[in-house]
Nucleic acid binder design. Sequence first.
DNA 1: CGGGTTTGACCAGCGC
DNA 2: GCGCTGGTCAAACCCG
Length: 331
Amino acid sequence: MSDESKDQLYFHEYLFQDNQNLASGSSSTGSYNHKPPASIAAASSAYSSQGFDPSNYMSFTECLQTPMDYNSMASAFGLSPSSSEVFASMESNPKPMEVGDLGGGGSDIILVTPNSSISSSSTEVGAEEDSGKSSKDKQPKETEVGGESSKKVSKAKKKGDKKQREPRFAFMTKSEVDHLEDGYRWRKYGQKAVKNSPFPRSYYRCTTQKCTVKKRVERSFQDPSTVITTYEGQHNHPIPATLRGNAAAMFPPSMFTPPIGGRPTFIPQDFFAQMPQIMSSSTSQAGGGTAPGSINYSQINPNYPHHQQYQLPDYGLLQDIIPSMFLKQEP
DNA sequence: CGGGTTTGACCAGCGC
DNA sequence: GCGCTGGTCAAACCCG
């Protein structure tokens, strides 16, 4: 992790701050003790009190397709770019929060919370992983003579061509489900123990041919109820029709609602309120918007009355937003 | 049998 | 240069 900020990591945190009921009600995820730090609350309320001006916003797709820095990203969200302290203050842990750096250089972070507090940060959001460092990695493999050469060759990269990183977006989502559905099909290709965390990190790759989008999923060790999903790259294809077509069946509310004492994993209404452009572009373009309007989850799943807090457009959540974020529109 | 997951090993980058 | 760590590979395994 260098200080260079070549990688652009846009970090969107969907904190379910309106889950007060859940915080007390669902003990299974008892670590949900996050009190928003004063600075956040201040920033948040200050921002929301300013009112939200959709005209200042751009879609994630635009963001991704445009080389940008914090300023542009922040301005895209109608924010002052200098609010890194907000993010920093998020963490009570002295160590930098994880999510960020995936290896190459420092990470720029844009933080979005449901209450409109958006911040950017250019810290090394170093991943602090490991605790039980995997000693296995240290053990040199018994080389069987000759057998591995091809493998090594295939992996060998010329020195000098530094691998170029795609823009990355990270989401924090309260969920007991690690792998959140976003409408795309993913193939897991690896899993690693995370430093300072009991939870492993999983690596996924889009299964669509020629699509190089990757995503990493890990659970925050600071708040085990939080799943951190990081996307890297842009999809160059639409959402697989089979998934979208059967969205209702493929992604029943239960997928987003943990069976016991869990929290929904969908994005809160506040988020949509903040992102009108994203909303309109994603739902219309993705073509997955079933019924216009929204769904009241409490009607779908009476076991989770608190879900009625979230008026969701369609079934969708990540799959309605993320696709629009990452679909590369080729000429 | 095809596609996805698991898992041990390898490799590159970075900091010391 | 060395060790640590994140990221990836790929064989073995699993499952429908």
